[in-house]
Simulated assay, not measured.
Amino acid sequence: MKIYQFNKEAGKRVTKFDSDFVMSRITQTQNSAHVGCIYLEAGGVIGFHEAVLPQLLLVVAGEGWVRGDSNEYIKIQKGQAAFWNKGEWHETKTPNGLTAIVIESEELNVSSMKAL
Rank of each mutant, 00 (worst) to 15 (best):
K8V: 00
V102M: 15
A61F: 12
G79K: 08
V110H: 09
G97F: 08
D20W: 12
W89M: 09
E88G: 04
G11H: 08
V52N: 11
Q28A: 12
A33Y: 10
N31H: 04
E107V: 00
I46Q: 15
V59I: 14
Q28S: 09
L58R: 04
W84M: 05
D18W: 13
Q28K: 11
N85S: 14
K2A: 13
E63M: 08
E91L: 05
I38T: 07
V22D: 12
I76N: 07
K114R: 08
G43D: 13
L108V: 00
F6N: 08
F6T: 00
S24C: 01
T92D: 09
N7F: 05
D69F: 09
G68W: 11
A51S: 05
K78H: 09
I46V: 08
N85I: 02
A100R: 00
L98A: 05
A100Q: 04
G44Y: 08
E106K: 02
V22P: 02
Q30Y: 10
S24W: 05
A115M: 14
L116K: 13
E41V: 00
I26G: 03
V22W: 11
T99H: 11
I101A: 08
E104W: 06
H49V: 03
C37E: 13
T92E: 15
R13H: 13
A115F: 12
Y4D: 10
E106D: 15
G97D: 07
V45C: 14
V66F: 13
Y39L: 02
I103N: 05
M1T: 05
T29I: 03
G68Q: 06
V45F: 10
A61S: 14
S32C: 04
G87F: 05
A115T: 07
Q80D: 11
N71S: 12
M23S: 06
Y73D: 06
K12L: 14
I103L: 14
L116D: 13
S105I: 00
R67V: 00
G97I: 02
I74R: 15
F21I: 00
A81N: 05
K78R: 14
K114H: 13
E41F: 03
L57H: 15
L108K: 04
S70R: 06
E91C: 07
L57M: 15
E104H: 02
L53W: 12
Y73F: 14
G43T: 03
S32I: 01
V66E: 12
P54M: 09
